[in-house]
C-alpha cells in the first residue's frame, strides 16, 4: 500500500503543469515527511487508552502483589511497606485458611469452565448445523436464540435467580410439583446444587455466542464442496463429518479458547445469581478474589491471587495453542 502511493505520487507530479506542481509541492512534501508518523498518530488514542486502563494497572497490580497493601494504605499506597513474597506464600499455602479456600475455588472454577464451555459449544454447533438450510421460521429462531446473549447480564441472570427460588420458583414447580422427579423441593442457590445452577445459567447465556461464531464460519464453506459430495452419494451425517467439521477446525480452535477464557474469568453470572455471598459449590474465582479483597480490604493478597490466576491462564493458553497447532499439522500431513 505504501509502495503504491509513493509510485502514483511522482507520476502525477510529472504529468501536471509546472506551475501547479510547484503550487502543490509544499503541502505534499509536508504530507510525505509526516507520513511515517501517520499510522502512529492514528493508533495513538487506542494505545493511550489501553495503557491507562489495562497495561499500567496490570503492572501496578503486579507491584501491589508484593506489598503489604491493607486498608490503611489504600489512599496512599506508595507508603505501603513491601511484603516480599509473603502475599504469595499466604495464598498458595493450602493448609492455611486463605490458601485452601482459594484452591477450592480454583478447582470449582476449572470444573465449571470445562462443563460450561463444553455444553455451550455443543449447543452452538448443533444449532448452527441444523440451521444451515433455509426453512420457514429460521429467521425467527435465530433471533430467539440470540436473545439470551443480547439481554444485559444483570437482567437475565436475575430471571434465573427467580426461577431457581425454593418456594416460588419455576424449576421446583416443574421438577417437583409437575413431574414429581424430586421427593421434596430442592435448594438451587445454596448447597451443592448451586454448582449445577451456575453451569446451566452460564451455558444459557453463552451458547448463542458459539452459535453466532459457528454460523459465520459455516458461511465460508463453499457450496461446491457439499454439491460434489452429494453427487458422490454422501449423506448428511457424512457431510457433517467430512466437510463441516474439518472446515470449522480453525474457527473452533479460537472459539473454544475465547469461551474458556471468558467463562473462567466470569464475574457477572455468579455475582448476580448468588449475590454478595456465594455458596461454596458456586464460589467461582473472580467473585472469590473480589470478596477476599473488598471484605478484608487486603488488596495485596487479592492482587497476588489475580496475578496467579493470570499466570495460570497464560500457561493454559500457550499449552492449548501449542497442542492444537501440533494436532492441526499432524492431521494435515
Amino acid at each position: 500500500m505504501a509502495a503504491t502511493t509513493s509510485a502514483t505520487a511522482p507520476s502525477r507530479e510529472d504529468g501536471s503543469l509546472p506551475g501547479s506542481a510547484r503550487g502543490r509541492k509544499k503541502p505534499r512534501r509536508s504530507y510525505s515527511v509526516g507520513r511515517g508518523a501517520v499510522p502512529y498518530l492514528l493508533v495513538l488514542p487506542a494505545i493511550l487508552m489501553e495503557l491507562l486502563i489495562h497495561l499500567v494497572p496490570m503492572v501496578v497490580g503486579v507491584v501491589m502483589s508484593f506489598k503489604e497493601l491493607t486498608q490503611f494504605y489504600i489512599r496512599n499506597w506508595g507508603q505501603a511497606p513491601g511484603a516480599g513474597l509473603r502475599n504469595y506464600r499466604v495464598v498458595v499455602d493450602v493448609n492455611g485458611a486463605v490458601g485452601s479456600a482459594l484452591l477450592h475455588s480454583f478447582l470449582i472454577t476449572c470444573a465449571f469452565a470445562v462443563l460450561a464451555v463444553g455444553f455451550s459449544w455443543l449447543l452452538g454447533i448443533t444449532g448452527a448445523i441444523l440451521m444451515q438450510d433455509t426453512f420457514r421460521g429460521r429467521g425467527f429462531l435465530r433471533a430467539l436464540f440470540m436473545t439470551p446473549y443480547a439481554l444485559p447480564v444483570y437482567a437475565s441472570v436475575i430471571i434465573w435467580a427467580f426461577m431457581l427460588q425454593h418456594d416460588n420458583g419455576l424449576v421446583n414447580h416443574v421438577l417437583h410439583d409437575q413431574l414429581h422427579l424430586t421427593s421434596k423441593p430442592a435448594f438451587w442457590l445454596i448447597g451443592g446444587n448451586s454448582f449445577i445452577s451456575v453451569v446451566v445459567v452460564s451455558v444459557w447465556r453463552n451458547w448463542p455466542f458459539a452459535l453466532l461464531v459457528i454460523m459465520a464460519g459455516l458461511q465460508n464453506i463453499p457450496d461446491e464442496l457439499y454439491e460434489a459430495s452429494a453427487i458422490d452419494g454422501a449423506g448428511i451425517w457424512q457431510q457433517i463429518r467430512r466437510i463441516t467439521m474439518p472446515s470449522l477446525r480453525p474457527i473452533n480452535r479460537v472459539l473454544v479458547l475465547v469461551l474458556f477464557l471468558w467463562t473462567f474469568n466470569d464475574f457477572n453470572v455468579p455475582y448476580v445469581l448468588f449475590g454478595q455471598s456465594a455458596p461454596p459449590a458456586g464460589d467461582l474465582i473472580s467473585v472469590h478474589i473480589y470478596q477476599a479483597s473488598f471484605h478484608t480490604w487486603n488488596f495485596g493478597s487479592g492482587s497476588a491471587m489475580s496475578v496467579l490466576m493470570l499466570l495460570f491462564l497464560l500457561v493454559v493458553t500457550a499449552a492449548y495453542l501449542a497442542v492444537t497447532s501440533l494436532s492441526n499439522r499432524r492431521s494435515n500431513a
Partner: peptide
C-alpha cells in the same frame, strides 16, 4: 489479548489509580 485478561486483575489497581 487485553480482551482476555480477567477483569478482576485490573479492577483493584485501577481502583487504586483512580483514587490516587
Amino acid at each position: 489479548s487485553t480482551q482476555m485478561f480477567p477483569g478482576i486483575l485490573f479492577l483493584l489497581p485501577l481502583f487504586l489509580i483512580f483514587v490516587n
